Computed example of a mutant assay.
Amino acid sequence: MTTTTTRAPVLRGPVDGPFLAPGDMAEAVTDFHRAGAAERRWDVETAVDWTAADANRLTDGQRSAVRFITLIEDHLPGYFAVYTRRFPLTDEVSEQDFAHHRELYHFTVRWAVEEDSHARALFRYQTDSGIACPDDLRRELAAEGRKPFELPHDESVALFAYALVQEKATQIYYQQLRSVVGDPVLAELLNRLSRDEARHFAFMADILERYLRVYGDAVVEPIRDVIAHFRMPLADTMRGYWRWALRIADAARYDHTDAYEHLIRIVNRAVDAPSDRVDELTRFVAACRTAAPLPLTTPAAVPPAAASA
């Protein structure tokens, strides 16, 4: 019998550059905000009919999937802390870097609000549908939420590349789960969550394209490193993560490497005349894709997180 071990991550300081020019970051952030205009936003309290939520319409696997993604989404404070720790707004950074981080912060706070809404909505669904009682669920979330979170990368572009894959993978999973769940309330909620994740992915895609256009080969290796060591959030800290992944494998097909084809498209779109290093990157990413659905026995195909970040 395999025993799952957890380990506390090493918390890292400010990331290394290169960074985009503050004006370039500001353009990407403005486009993100435009895509999430007020008329497209939704409110947890009024967006769905919570009185109609009914977990009796779900299979055991679907219930387990809801519990799993709630734990992942609720870790938002840890994800947000990564941005504030790795892109600090303090006197320890230069004025130029501060200006970049300040523009990024305009994205980060909106992203955090939206991801926190995901956590609150999934909490509400669990309690109103009959999956869990509020006090028990709060204790369960607190047990995982107290654990720190970190990404094992020191280059800024690597953090954006990681978030790009994670956001797209989460979007794909929510779409897959939505297509099979029996409760229309949950299906509507997952649709809203997946649309938010699509916008988050679009922002990261914009950032990564800008990096590739400006820095070219200089950012290839950090992106490659992300794919070489990719693991979804909390895979190393949540007790029973892999066993839980096995339990909910039948809820909806999921393979995070499905997101890799989107990364390849972004690289190809950003680079007009690919260098040997860029060509090698796209070949490597393509080779890392799962050729066929796996039985969720390895990190190559596990249920996702959302956070979001």
Rank of each mutant, 00 (worst) to 15 (best):
S94N: 06
S94C: 10
E95T: 04
E95L: 10
E95I: 07
Q96C: 06
Q96R: 11
Q96I: 08
Q96A: 15
D97N: 14
D97E: 14
D97F: 12
D97H: 07
F98E: 05
F98L: 02
F98A: 00
F98C: 07
F98V: 02
F98H: 05
A99I: 04
A99P: 09
A99N: 00
H100F: 15
H100V: 01
H100Y: 15
H101F: 15
H101M: 12
H101E: 11
H101Y: 15
R102W: 07
R102Y: 10
R102L: 08
R102S: 11
R102H: 10
E103A: 15
E103H: 11
L104G: 00
Y105K: 09
H106V: 04
H106L: 15
H106F: 15
H106N: 10
H106P: 11
F107P: 02
F107A: 05
F107T: 00
F107Q: 08
T108G: 02
T108P: 05
T108D: 11
T108Q: 11
T108E: 13
V109H: 06
V109W: 09
V109A: 06
V109G: 08
V109I: 13
V109K: 02
V109E: 10
R110M: 12
R110V: 13
R110A: 13
W111F: 09
W111C: 03
A112K: 01
A112D: 12
A112N: 09
A112G: 08
V113H: 12
V113N: 11
V113F: 13
V113G: 04
V113M: 12
V113I: 15
V113P: 03
V113L: 13
E114P: 02
E114F: 07
E114C: 10
E115N: 03
E115V: 02
E115H: 01
D116H: 00
D116V: 01
S117K: 07
S117Y: 01
S117I: 05
S117C: 05
H118V: 12
H118P: 10
H118Y: 08
H118Q: 06
R120Q: 03
R120N: 11
R120G: 04
L122C: 09
L122D: 04
L122R: 09
L122Q: 06
L122A: 09
L122K: 01
F123T: 06
F123L: 00
F123C: 05
R124P: 01
R124Q: 09
R124F: 03
Y125P: 03
Y125R: 06
Y125K: 03
Y125L: 07
Y125A: 10
Y125F: 04
Q126F: 08
Q126V: 01
Q126E: 11
T127F: 14
T127I: 15
D128H: 13
D128M: 14
D128E: 13
S129N: 09
S129H: 06
S129Q: 04
G130W: 02
G130A: 00
G130C: 09
I131R: 03
I131Q: 03
A132T: 01
A132L: 01
A132Q: 00
C133A: 15
C133H: 14
C133L: 15
C133M: 14
C133W: 14
C133R: 12
C133P: 05
